[in-house]
């Protein structure tokens, strides 16, 4: 099932399948690239940032950025 990263629920895991072009380079340095597995850790309330774990390392993204990343949710 495909979802935007911003729509993932707590503890869901998946693989990055798409990142919008304008964002691709900006998140690459944070370890988020197509093919990477990640897990949602926390979503902050009131349109706050999302926290994800990629390759064992935690990172956070603004909700608008997370909305430009597509995830194939595996569990």
């Amino acid at each position: 099932m495909k979802k935007k990263l911003s729509e993932m629920d707590y503890a869901e895991q998946g693989t990055v399948t798409g990142i919008e072009d304008d964002l691709r380079k900006r998140v690459a340095g944070m370890g988020i690239r197509v093919g990477k597995k990640l897990r949602m850790v926390t979503k902050q309330p009131i349109k706050g940032p999302v926290d994800v774990v990629v390759e064992g390392a935690e990172t956070s993204l603004g909700l608008d950025m997370a909305g430009k990343i597509t995830i194939e949710v595996t569990k």
């Binding site: 690459a28 340095g29 944070m30 370890g31 990629v54 390759e55 064992g56 390392a57």
Partner: peptide, 13 residues
């Protein structure tokens, strides 16, 4: 060292 993947990314750049 615990976040080596993204560290190497910057080093390679």
């Amino acid at each position: 060292a615990s976040k080596i993947e993204r560290g190497i990314y910057l080093a390679l750049e």
